[in-house]
Simulated assay, not measured.
Amino acid sequence: MPILAVLTLAVMVVALIDAITRREDQVKHLPKFAWVFFIVLLPLVGSILWFAIGREWERRGEPMSFGDPRRWQRDAEPAPVPRAFDARTTEQQIADLEREVYLADLEEQVRRRRAEGDAPA
């Protein structure tokens, strides 16, 4: 009897992997999430029905795989170069920003005073 349970579990796992890795256009009769739910809810019946009527047996392109497909390419592009690390502490960054705000405020005051001086009296 335990052999039947192990066999049912193995068929369910294979059906789940197959259902999850299929594209939507390769799934027939129900949406993919419904098939996954059905396979989990009724492992043996759901798995058999998935293989019998739920999946598309014709190949219509590249099968979907787990993970990033670029890892399987031999001539992959080089990894992007990360941005330069800012070694300043948070306090230094805050002080720099406060200094910039202060300078912007002073420049605004200078512009305002020049505009007041140019205005006719």
Rank of each mutant, 00 (worst) to 15 (best):
1 M>T: 08
4 L>N: 08
8 T>N: 14
9 L>G: 15
10 A>F: 14
10 A>V: 14
12 M>K: 05
14 V>Q: 06
14 V>T: 08
14 V>S: 04
16 L>E: 03
16 L>Q: 03
18 D>T: 01
18 D>S: 04
19 A>Y: 05
19 A>V: 05
20 I>C: 03
20 I>N: 02
23 R>C: 10
25 D>G: 06
26 Q>E: 15
29 H>I: 06
29 H>C: 09
30 L>G: 03
30 L>P: 02
30 L>D: 02
32 K>N: 01
32 K>I: 02
33 F>R: 15
35 W>F: 01
36 V>Y: 00
36 V>R: 02
37 F>P: 01
41 L>I: 05
42 L>N: 08
43 P>V: 02
45 V>N: 07
46 G>Y: 05
47 S>H: 03
48 I>L: 15
49 L>A: 05
54 G>I: 00
55 R>G: 00
57 W>Y: 12
59 R>E: 10
60 R>I: 10
60 R>G: 08
61 G>Q: 09
61 G>Y: 11
64 M>A: 06
67 G>I: 04
70 R>Q: 14
70 R>N: 12
71 R>P: 00
71 R>Q: 08
72 W>S: 01
72 W>H: 05
73 Q>D: 00
74 R>K: 11
74 R>S: 00
77 E>S: 09
80 P>I: 02
80 P>Y: 04
80 P>A: 03
81 V>N: 05
81 V>E: 11
83 R>M: 14
84 A>D: 12
85 F>R: 14
85 F>E: 11
85 F>Y: 12
86 D>T: 04
87 A>H: 10
87 A>G: 10
90 T>G: 09
91 E>Q: 12
93 Q>A: 08
93 Q>H: 06
94 I>H: 07
95 A>C: 06
96 D>Q: 10
97 L>S: 08
97 L>E: 12
99 R>C: 05
100 E>P: 03
100 E>K: 14
101 V>I: 11
103 L>T: 04
104 A>K: 07
106 L>F: 07
106 L>W: 06
108 E>P: 00
108 E>K: 07
110 V>H: 06
112 R>S: 14
113 R>W: 06
117 G>Y: 09
117 G>E: 15
118 D>G: 13
119 A>G: 11
119 A>M: 15
119 A>Q: 14
120 P>N: 15
120 P>S: 15
121 A>R: 15
121 A>H: 12
